[in-house]
Amino acid sequence: MKEELTCITCPLGCRLVAERGEDGSLAVSGNRCPRGAAYAREELLAPKRVVTATCRIAPASGTRRDEAAPRRVPVKTSAPFPKERVPELLAEIYRLELALPVARGAVLLADALGSGVDLVATRSVE
């Protein structure tokens, strides 16, 4: 069985053809780099996505923040995360309330939902 996919590993968007052999093996063509073949395997067997979102900031006590300062902290998963569990992860992310300052790279949820993937801040916010 032949399946056509578009690789989403990077913005080049290679058009991949994955062919399943009778023995269950998977032959991938159309990829311009090895990541394409890995993507096709993963996409057909266990799809994953990098999740990016933003988190709430805890209300500041005392001093008022500058009006121009960002009101959300952007975050991402440290690696691609199982696609079918993304809604669950988003619910966790939206429950967070971050105390400032937050440094870029700070781990906000370690081993999120037991996936082995961390949620990290992608911007330093003071």
Binding site: T52, P74, T122
Partner: peptide, 10 residues
């Protein structure tokens, strides 16, 4: 490597 916009900017 693949970064988000804020990471690239920082």
């Amino acid at each position: 490597e693949e970064l988000t916009g804020p990471e690239f900017a920082e």
